[in-house]
Amino acid sequence: MSSSLEKNMLILRSSDGEEFIVPEVVAVMSKAIKNMVEDECASNTIPVPNVDANILAMVIEFCKKHDESEAEAASDLKTFDSEFVNRGQEALYDLITAANFRDVKELLDALCQNVAEMIKGKSVHHIRIQFLGYQLFEILTSNFIWNIWCDRDFD
């Protein structure tokens, strides 16, 4: 531990080189980081490859809230979660990948639950609009034959 760093704090470095000072209790909500800390193979700076500063900041925000709010009412945390995961596709994709890669179970579940809600009880038409945004909506409304889309890969 460097002398300037308080005890029980860790530095996380994002893929684009930005550093975040985070309490150890928060950082170890990531099982991957927990394992590194437990195996004592973590120096004072832990690199978090594949996760950029923007996404890492979001993950840390989520973990901090969940660490602090043990005493808080469960309903408050639920509200926070549902607001936190309410993001565009781009961010959802990056967050899910990061939560999976760093093994942050609570975050992964909250995100996947959110995507599941986007699917729940919706028609195929609506799910496609949700996943593809406007582009597909325009195509679908310009009289494309549905069945063609049913068997086509979006890739």
Partner: peptide
């Protein structure tokens, strides 16, 4: 937009 979710 592109369908990122399906790429997971």
């Amino acid at each position: 937009s592109e369908d990122r979710i399906s790429k997971l």
